[in-house]
Simulated scan of single mutants.
Amino acid sequence: MTTPPPSLRATAWAAAVTALHCAPVVSTFGPLRNRAMPRLAGRGRADHVALTFDDGPDPRSTPHFLRVLDSQGVRATFFLLGSEARRSPGLVREIAAAGHEIGVHGWLHRPLLLRGPRATHDDLARARDAIAAITGSRPTLFRPPYGVMSTAAHVAARRLGLTPVLWTCWGRDWTARATPESVHRTVVSDLRGGGTVLLHDSDCTSAPGSWRSTLGALPRILDTCRQRGYTVGPLRDHGWPGSGGSVGLRPARGNTAGH
């Protein structure tokens, strides 16, 4: 048997490593994820809907969402960017003090497929530790930017004590064409009991001002959930396999730096 030349073996090895790194991308396809990956999709108990927000905190927009949620008596899960949390630590503390759950959305909103294992670990650890330093509690939930996981992200999340969770329905609220009506319509078209809703309380990676459409749709979404008999709350109350009945923040102990 002829042995392949070193260059060919190196190419094959690189291709195999790349394929392994990118394999979790299949979870980006919502219908497949919702059917075959209920834990990653955030499927919980049938009478509950988990409400989640990404890309904050933003002092221009997040306080408006906090006021609406408070007026409705609803708590949610906020997946925060570490870089934004560092800019607005008071707002992070306000989110936590209001009883909302806080998860990690990474330090920067960049695709994890473009990052190697060490860079991925450092990004998640930096965001986790920044949030822990601000709130005094360590996050236990993680949502990747764009909802795209990689093998390195799964490994890093496990080592850092973070449970990945995506969503079962969204509002497509990040576009310039979004309106309160379109956001509400898009969410409720796929809304089912046990589902996890993705919305955005910031436009830092979306069309400028798009958060206003989300804000306008929020009361309507909550009303629809109530009309369908669903309780709305954070992932910690979702009866979701990844929650384990625990909260999304746990007390930080000692040095929270990742290893």
Rank of each mutant, 00 (worst) to 15 (best):
G99V: 06
S71A: 15
V26N: 06
S182T: 15
R60G: 04
R212G: 09
P38Y: 02
R60L: 14
R228E: 15
A98E: 06
A96G: 03
C204Q: 08
S246C: 12
P117W: 03
W13G: 05
S213E: 00
D129A: 15
G106V: 13
R220F: 12
P111K: 09
A50P: 01
S150P: 01
A207G: 01
R93H: 05
R60K: 09
F142D: 08
I95S: 00
G248E: 07
R118N: 06
G242L: 05
L108V: 12
L80G: 10
T77W: 03
A14K: 02
V188A: 04
G56N: 12
L166E: 05
G244I: 01
H48P: 00
A14C: 08
L160Y: 06
T214K: 02
A19D: 00
H21D: 09
F142S: 04
V25M: 14
G116S: 04
V104R: 10
R250Y: 01
G161V: 02
M149G: 00
H48C: 08
S83C: 15
L66E: 13
S210A: 12
S206Q: 14
Q227S: 13
G30L: 15
R185D: 15
R236Q: 15
T18K: 08
W174G: 14
G161Q: 04
H121K: 11
G195M: 05
H238C: 08
C225Q: 10
C225V: 05
G136Y: 08
T175V: 09
P24I: 11
L32I: 07
R212M: 12
P139M: 14
L91S: 08
P241V: 07
H238A: 15
A10Q: 10
I95H: 00
G193T: 01
D55I: 09
P57E: 13
A41K: 03
R236N: 13
A23G: 04
A76M: 02
T140Q: 15
R192H: 09
A16H: 02
A125W: 11
G258S: 10
A257N: 01
D129M: 11
V68N: 08
L80F: 08
F65G: 00
H64Y: 11
T175Q: 12
S150T: 05
L124R: 07
L235C: 10
V247I: 09
H238D: 05
